[in-house]
Design a protein around this nucleic acid. Sequence first.
DNA 1: AAGGGGCGTTTTACCTCCGTAACGAAACCT
DNA 2: AGGTTTCGTTACGGAGGTAAAACGCCCCTT
Lengths: 243, 243
Amino acid sequence: MSGSCFADRLEKHLNLTERERAALARLEENQRKVKRGAMIQRANETITELFVLRAGRVMSYVILPDGSRQILRVYFAGDFIGSASTVYSKSPEALVALSDSVLCPFDKYALRVLLEEHPRVAALMFVLSQMERVALTDRLASLGRSSARARVASFLLDIIDRLRLMDDSITNSFDLKLTQEEIGDAVGLTSVHVNRMIRQMEADGLISRSNGRIALLNEKALEEIGHYTNRYNDLDLDWLPDA
Amino acid sequence: MSGSCFADRLEKHLNLTERERAALARLEENQRKVKRGAMIQRANETITELFVLRAGRVMSYVILPDGSRQILRVYFAGDFIGSASTVYSKSPEALVALSDSVLCPFDKYALRVLLEEHPRVAALMFVLSQMERVALTDRLASLGRSSARARVASFLLDIIDRLRLMDDSITNSFDLKLTQEEIGDAVGLTSVHVNRMIRQMEADGLISRSNGRIALLNEKALEEIGHYTNRYNDLDLDWLPDA
DNA sequence: AAGGGGCGTTTTACCTCCGTAACGAAACCT
DNA sequence: AGGTTTCGTTACGGAGGTAAAACGCCCCTT
């Protein structure tokens, strides 16, 4: 366990050197605690800060002119967030804490130094960003081309697989920490219809629920319903620069 | 005009050094011509090649188990494609030429050398990948939270703005090179309904068509209908390492 | 020039999945 | 206890999907 939560995350995929770990730890020198519901970054505001999410859960979203919301992504401990601000001077998306969380803010210019001095970390940042790109295209296919039932199923599977990545103790149940309205805003449905789907899946014995926790009782079936594939098995990072 | 089409694209955003241009040109040493309709990369096949698209037009898509297709992205000259293969050993998406095209294939390991030797280019690759990420989240919001009319409008605007980025001669009309079925597969609609929307927009005087070309007659109105914002104006690349 | 096949577009009729609106119950604050 | 948030459920309507056929156009072939 190094001082850097982000380094821990990267080490799920490959081994870092001491120097690299130290450099990454420097991104997390500052900490900021935020409460559930806190706005971390407003959309369309000037920003120079990025964050490593050290603990808790965060979502990013946009609000359309008609008031509807699209949740873009849910983030977990170890994730690098706010990365859009590496490119745009005004944040294209808002960030809100879904649970009490700990953030490590750092400056764009700190990222610059990191990338200059650690080519392998630079390559890794590119790789992480590609992983997120693929996750987004998967969700795009889900919203564009599958039914409400399929969208909810694949969304649940994606969340549990990402939680498992950092927490080995998770078996088949987890705390979603999202309201049904939020699930709807993530997969492009209304809360009413999310509720229909969830109760239907519960009636079908695919999932069960008790006070906020969701248990996936038949993942194979859910994967089929949701057209879901776990991409984290098929990584190829051999081409990255040597340590 | 350097030897590298990709360098030309990057120079739309910032100035490269001679050394950097030379390094990028090395990615485009090989050329391959492909005909319209040619499969460049099949989904789920082992791959080690990436491409710079030198001329023509290419799309990426996935096919869901039920046979439906989701087009993920349309690429133009100067775009870097197949980037998912930097992360996965099997391609998560298929690539097909939408018009006769010229591709410059290169190996993952060539990318590695580039990133090791040119930290600024590495940072730039990260930036490009973030730009694509934001483009995807915009489309995610479009599919998840807006009407058929809005989806078609924003799709057309996105295409024309990306064409304009590389070709100053474009005013308000362009060659789409997509069938209505393909438009539908890109924005999550059926060809029938795309047709309804397009003819409606034509009747409303928002667009006009003649032999494959589409003219946007009222971009302001289309932007409002599609909840569209052109992100290419708001870039902030000042933090990148110095030349 | 005539005929024909292929591809994309247009149109019609019908249907269904999902959204809208509304309200009551339960759970959660403070 | 009283407000606030979330969940559950209903009835209804509409946006968009499905299926099918006709139409137009280009290119081929004879």
